[in-house]
Design a protein around this nucleic acid. Sequence first.
DNA 1: GTAACTGCAAAATATTTGCATCCTT
DNA 2: AAGGATGCAAATATTTTGCAGTTAC
Lengths: 139, 139
Amino acid sequence: METQADILKRTGLSITEGRKQILDLFLENEGALAHADIEKQTDAAFDRVTVYRTLQTFVDKGIIHQIPTTDNSVLYALCKHNCAQGHHHDNHVHFICDNCDKTICLDDVTVPAVKLPAGFKPNKFAMIVSGACRECQAG
Amino acid sequence: METQADILKRTGLSITEGRKQILDLFLENEGALAHADIEKQTDAAFDRVTVYRTLQTFVDKGIIHQIPTTDNSVLYALCKHNCAQGHHHDNHVHFICDNCDKTICLDDVTVPAVKLPAGFKPNKFAMIVSGACRECQAG
DNA sequence: GTAACTGCAAAATATTTGCATCCTT
DNA sequence: AAGGATGCAAATATTTTGCAGTTAC
């Protein structure tokens, strides 16, 4: 399994305490993270601005990607498959739990095809399903 | 065809100049609108705050709905089918044009079914397709 | 006339930028 | 040592709230 340091090295980024910790959060979490989650889970050890810049850097390098949400908050999740720099392969379904509010990447569920009206040329597909996740369903 | 005044009357809202004009924008536009679009297209005739409150009121009344976008901006579009108050029926596909940036509700394209892993109980489905829209494709 | 709506001011929140300092390589 | 990364301050942008004045019904 690739560690945080491996990922940083592979993408040509300096290995710093902040990047390691933030990357760890993504590696440990099944769900997606918001900027606020990261501040909270790192106990505000890093400047708010550093978190912004780190997330932007990770997106640029193809380490994480932004997730579209129904409530228009900004969420990020690891790119589990091979995302080249600036070209994300993010064609899996995202699940948002109505109960615990977690956003989960269903990496194995690809977005189904859909037939568009004449004249539309599709390029990228995204799909968001909301409902009860495994934990909240079981509980 | 229902006019802006009809819609306001039907939903029990006072008919004011601002609401009529903002509603007109939605009725005239195929695409979805952002807060900034509305300010621009009304020549800032109304207070920024009024626009925020008007949009919120319309969402509450089921006249418009928020659209999830891949770049996490906030967009609104008319509810063309029957959206009861606080309960939107928004199960059609949204199309975002990579070229002209318009967001279009494909009302006739319903979100396709998808098979989720065991343990997930789906409730609502949303789908966003990006690419070239009719106009940008033709041109 | 009364309740609902609007505008203004201001607060709260979110994001970006510049620059000096510090850390990684 | 050099370039990149961080922290702080501050600028900018976005959204919310309170309240007084105005308008729709």
